[in-house]
């Protein structure tokens, strides 16, 4: 049994091929790159919204991409319980589309930041972290100018209590501290899920941490967890 993955390519996506490569090699899926103007993405087991600068990110990041035909499909697909993973720009697009709460604004340092960070898994309840014990520390790169997550007014407590915080920025020892958060994100949030747990996103790039040759394999942990979760769902259904 092989998973079917779709990677949506928006104009200006630049991690689309990376995500496609990761979906094929780390997730073990049959992966398709699909244009943003495709209205029907078929019946995939997972849709991945990759990183990049959709539409140049000249307005707010992700603000244009949410109005594409592919995103109309993604909204319906998520409503049906389909698994959606947003990475970096994909996270921004999901927030703009209202599929995840809050917004990602400019890094507190006002500069683009590309470096390895540590993130801590905060919950195992999503398909991306199923079977990965909370507290697990993963190292992978970030590369963004707008990763500073802000919650809607008064919404943070609810988001936390509903276990929607998927990853937090930490130090190598897994502790939250000033300086471990690279962009000023509220509550050190590095990744989120929706209430149901089928729409997940993170600012770091797990697809760039899937090969020891490139300096780390912690990203593979997440793709492997996703593969297990999605395959077991296939078996059950």
């Amino acid at each position: 049994m092989t998973l079917q993955a779709v990677v949506v390519r928006f104009p200006g996506s630049n991690c689309d091929e990376d995500a496609h490569h990761a979906a094929a090699t780390l997730l073990g899926a049959e992966a398709r790159l699909v244009s943003h103007d495709t209205a029907d993405l078929g019946e995939p087991d997972i849709v991945i919204l990759p990183g990049g600068f959709s539409y140049g990110d000249y307005l707010r990041c992700g603000a244009m991409a949410r109005f594409t035909k592919a995103m109309d499909f993604v909204a319906r697909y998520a409503e049906r319980g389909g698994a959606v993973l947003g990475i970096c720009n994909g996270f921004q697009i999901l927030c703009e589309a209202g599929l995840l709460p809050g917004a990602l604004v400019q890094n507190s340092g006002l500069r683009f930041v590309c470096k390895d960070v540590y993130i801590r898994v905060e919950t195992s309840r999503t398909f991306l972290t199923g079977g990965v014990p909370p507290g697990t520390v993963l190292r992978m790169p970030i590369a963004h100018g707008d990763g500073n997550w802000r919650a809607p007014e008064g919404a943070l407590d609810g988001i936390v209590s509903r276990d929607q915080v998927l990853f937090r920025y930490v130090n190598a020892a897994g502790e939250r501290e000033e300086g471990a958060n690279p962009n000023g994100s509220l509550d050190d949030v590095a990744g989120l899920s929706n209430e149901r747990g089928n729409v997940v996103a993170l600012m770091p790039h797990p697809e760039r941490a899937g090969d020891a040759l490139l300096g780390g394999t912690d990203g593979a942990v997440l793709f492997q967890a996703a593969a297990r979760s999605l395959l077991s769902k296939l078996v059950r259904s």
Binding site: D18, C114, E207
Partner: peptide, 8 residues
């Protein structure tokens, strides 16, 4: 400030 890891 440079993305040096894109394209994997």
């Amino acid at each position: 400030q440079y993305d040096w890891s894109v394209r994997t």
